[in-house]
Amino acid sequence: MQRVRRDAFWESLDLPDGVPFGMLLYRFYDACGEPLYIGKSTAPFGRLEGHRKQAEWWGLVEFIAMSMYPSHGLLLRAELAAIRSEQPRFNKAGLRGKKRVELHLHGSADDAADVLLDEADPEFLADLVRILSTPDRALLAVAPPCPGFC
């Protein structure tokens, strides 16, 4: 985490090395270290400059944390996980999952799990796991016995 000088924003940043500066996850914090806003960008200079010039919360910014990701997919997942776990004050999108997602039921269970983990509300997922884990709702590994009229 770095202290930000709002009057000399770019000069105050120690930009990350290694991965090309393009798949950036950034977090802005207030003076107490509380998260204000979490975002991502593949064009960080313009995105961060936009926040600096237009965000209603910019006057509260004291710190920034930045992480680079090697792919856009990993960046999207990291942003969503960070927003859901840290609950920043000014993020509106991403705090809850989508109301509906397309889930393919004939195919890879791993792919379906990825969709749910990426898109669903964490509380919904916790409830779903609890329900599917109860003995009366657990999936049967074998067919139940024939009731006698087979």
Rank of each mutant, 00 (worst) to 15 (best):
G73D: 14
L125K: 01
A78Y: 03
L76P: 06
R96V: 15
H104I: 14
P16K: 01
A8T: 04
L76D: 10
G97R: 06
F45Q: 09
K92H: 15
L139M: 13
I38K: 02
R77A: 14
V4D: 00
S12K: 05
R137H: 10
I64C: 01
L25Y: 00
I83H: 06
I64Y: 00
G33P: 06
E11M: 09
F63Q: 14
A43P: 05
D118V: 10
L139E: 13
P144D: 10
C146F: 11
E49L: 07
L75R: 02
Q2G: 01
V142R: 12
I38E: 03
E56N: 13
A93C: 15
L76C: 11
G73F: 10
A93D: 15
V115Y: 01
D110R: 15
S67W: 12
L75K: 02
H106E: 15
I64Q: 00
P70M: 09
E79S: 11
L128G: 00
P147G: 07
L60I: 05
A109E: 11
K53S: 09
G97H: 06
L48G: 02
D118N: 12
P20L: 02
V19N: 04
F28V: 02
R89W: 13
D110S: 15
E62R: 13
F63K: 13
L13A: 01
G73V: 12
R47P: 06
E56K: 12
S71H: 09
L75E: 03
E49Q: 11
L60H: 05
T134H: 05
E119S: 10
E86Q: 13
L103D: 01
Y37V: 01
A120H: 03
I38G: 03
D110A: 15
D14W: 07
Y37T: 00
L117V: 08
F90T: 13
G39L: 06
R130P: 07
G97W: 06
A8P: 05
D111H: 15
P20F: 00
R52Q: 08
L15Q: 00
K92P: 14
G39P: 05
Y29D: 11
I83D: 09
E62Y: 09
P122I: 08
L105W: 07
P20A: 01
A8H: 04
D17P: 09
G39N: 02
F28G: 01
S71C: 12
A43D: 08
P88G: 13
D136T: 14
C146N: 11
E86V: 12
F28P: 03
